[in-house]
Amino acid sequence: MRYYRLYFLDRFSGHIDHFREFEAADDDAALAVALGWQEDRPMELWNRHRKLKHWDAPPPADDEA
């Protein structure tokens, strides 16, 4: 098992707001876990010193309906 951290970033400052630590069998399994925890903010998935993926924040919802 490998150790991963999923960082949730502040949408405006880009600073770390909070993170989740977890273990996964490999990078593909870790990416699947991270997608399940996706929020409406930027995120980064790391394995020690390796950044696996950066997700940008989704665009704001358009309230015009």
Results as ranks from 00 to 15, higher is better:
residue 1 M to F: 04
residue 1 M to R: 00
residue 2 R to C: 07
residue 2 R to Q: 06
residue 2 R to V: 03
residue 3 Y to W: 04
residue 3 Y to D: 06
residue 3 Y to N: 05
residue 4 Y to T: 00
residue 5 R to C: 00
residue 5 R to M: 06
residue 5 R to L: 01
residue 5 R to S: 00
residue 6 L to F: 03
residue 7 Y to S: 02
residue 8 F to Q: 02
residue 8 F to I: 07
residue 8 F to W: 02
residue 8 F to S: 02
residue 9 L to K: 01
residue 9 L to Q: 04
residue 9 L to E: 04
residue 10 D to R: 01
residue 10 D to S: 04
residue 11 R to D: 00
residue 11 R to M: 02
residue 12 F to S: 10
residue 12 F to H: 13
residue 12 F to G: 06
residue 12 F to E: 15
residue 13 S to D: 10
residue 14 G to S: 09
residue 14 G to C: 08
residue 14 G to R: 07
residue 15 H to A: 02
residue 15 H to C: 01
residue 16 I to Y: 04
residue 16 I to V: 13
residue 17 D to G: 01
residue 18 H to K: 11
residue 19 F to W: 06
residue 19 F to M: 06
residue 19 F to Y: 01
residue 20 R to Q: 14
residue 21 E to D: 15
residue 21 E to P: 08
residue 22 F to T: 06
residue 22 F to M: 02
residue 22 F to V: 10
residue 23 E to S: 14
residue 23 E to H: 12
residue 24 A to Y: 00
residue 24 A to M: 02
residue 24 A to E: 00
residue 24 A to H: 00
residue 24 A to C: 12
residue 25 A to W: 13
residue 25 A to P: 11
residue 25 A to S: 13
residue 25 A to T: 14
residue 25 A to L: 15
residue 25 A to C: 10
residue 26 D to W: 10
residue 26 D to K: 13
residue 27 D to E: 10
residue 27 D to R: 02
residue 28 D to N: 12
residue 29 A to I: 04
residue 30 A to C: 05
residue 30 A to R: 00
residue 30 A to S: 03
residue 32 A to Y: 08
residue 32 A to D: 15
residue 34 A to L: 10
residue 34 A to F: 03
residue 35 L to G: 14
residue 35 L to V: 08
residue 36 G to S: 12
residue 37 W to Q: 11
residue 37 W to L: 15
residue 38 Q to D: 09
residue 39 E to H: 09
residue 39 E to P: 05
residue 40 D to T: 12
residue 41 R to D: 05
residue 42 P to T: 08
residue 43 M to E: 01
residue 43 M to P: 01
residue 43 M to R: 01
residue 44 E to Q: 13
residue 45 L to F: 08
residue 45 L to C: 11
residue 45 L to Q: 02
residue 45 L to N: 05
residue 46 W to R: 00
residue 46 W to I: 03
residue 46 W to T: 02
residue 47 N to D: 12
residue 47 N to P: 04
residue 47 N to M: 09
residue 47 N to G: 14
residue 48 R to Y: 08
residue 48 R to G: 10
residue 48 R to A: 12
residue 49 H to N: 01
residue 49 H to Y: 11
residue 49 H to M: 09
residue 50 R to N: 08
residue 50 R to L: 11
residue 50 R to A: 06
residue 51 K to Y: 03
residue 51 K to R: 15
residue 51 K to M: 13
residue 51 K to P: 01
residue 51 K to D: 06
residue 52 L to S: 09
residue 53 K to S: 06
residue 54 H to D: 06
residue 55 W to F: 15
residue 56 D to E: 12
residue 56 D to L: 03
residue 56 D to R: 07
residue 56 D to P: 03
residue 56 D to T: 07
residue 57 A to I: 09
residue 57 A to E: 09
residue 59 P to H: 14
residue 59 P to W: 14
residue 59 P to V: 03
residue 59 P to S: 05
residue 60 P to H: 15
residue 61 A to V: 14
residue 61 A to I: 15
residue 62 D to A: 11
residue 63 D to V: 11
residue 63 D to F: 12
residue 63 D to A: 10
residue 63 D to S: 10
residue 65 A to M: 14
